[in-house]
């Protein structure tokens, strides 16, 4: 569904992705793990088109998309929950969700809003609250809900567990699994490797801008290097 080949990207003259190649098949949860500064977020931004790439190709369902602007990629059904949630703080929960469907604003949004509220019933109770007044966990749920409003087929999740209490991490992970069961394809970036590997089908390890390891989640989990560096066992 998504195939990335040899992608390089730089901030100014400093290259941070040195030829990343990976692919995500339809219906999979693929996890990308790696330390801070490995280039995970840069890669996610590159896929969504908010970070320019300096080389390589990004294909979505066979079509090269690397030349397309970010707002067009959303219409291809690629949606991202960015790192740090990035909700529109002055706007209400309702407006955040409505704006999530910006690219399909002529459509009837009620069924989608109902679906998001079924996943995160808390949102309905804070309907008119400015998103900036929500707790971190609530903002994360809003951010996921907002991304789902675009009706993606591929969902990019960047560190959804960051800064959340352990019980919330479990909740978010169960939601991700439920989304997969609904047929959504997911690329999940996590520093919390054990959480990511628990729900992923396959995984890639990204180190300083290069994929250094790939395999099924089970293989990665038992790899001695990963155990030592990311799982702490």
């Amino acid at each position: 569904m998504l195939s990335i080949e040899n992608v390089t990207s730089a901030y100014g003259r400093i290259e941070v992705l040195h030829g990343v190649t990976l692919h995500v098949d339809a219906g999979e949860i693929v996890s990308l793990i790696g330390a801070n500064g490995a280039g995970k977020t840069t890669l996610m931004h590159a896929i969504s088109g908010v970070q320019p790439i300096t080389g390589g190709t990004i294909r979505f369902e066979g079509e090269p998309i690397e030349q397309r602007p970010a707002h067009v990629r959303v219409t291809f059904a690629i949606s991202q929950v960015p790192e740090g949630r990035q909700v529109f703080e002055p706007l209400s929960v309702k407006d955040n969700l409505r704006l999530g469907a910006w690219t399909r604003r002529d459509a009837d949004l009620e069924p989608d809003i109902a679906r998001v509220c079924a996943l995160f019933p808390m949102l309905k109770t804070m309907w008119k609250t400015p998103a900036g007044a929500l707790s971190g966990g609530q903002q994360q749920m809003l951010a996921i809900g907002r991304a789902l409003m675009a009706k993606p087929r591929l969902l990019l999740l960047d560190e959804p567990s960051m800064g959340l209490a352990p019980n919330l991490v479990d909740h978010v992970l169960s939601v991700i699994r439920a989304l997969k069961d609904d047929g959504l394809t997911i690329l999940l970036v996590e520093q919390n490797a054990s959480a990511a590997l628990a729900i992923a089908d396959r995984a890639y390890v990204l180190e300083t801008g290069r994929v250094t390891l790939s395999g099924t989640a089970a293989e990665i989990q038992t790899d001695s290097r990963v155990k030592e560096a990311y799982l702490g066992i």
């Binding site: 960015p82 002055p90 706007l91 704006l99």
Partner: peptide, 24 residues
């Protein structure tokens, strides 16, 4: 209006606005 909200959203968080498909 939703267009007005999109202006506010762009003002509040340009990155997030681009990621939800607003042509900022």
């Amino acid at each position: 209006t939703l267009l007005g909200k999109a202006v506010l959203a762009t003002a509040a968080n340009r990155l997030a606005a681009r990621l939800i498909g607003i042509d900022t």
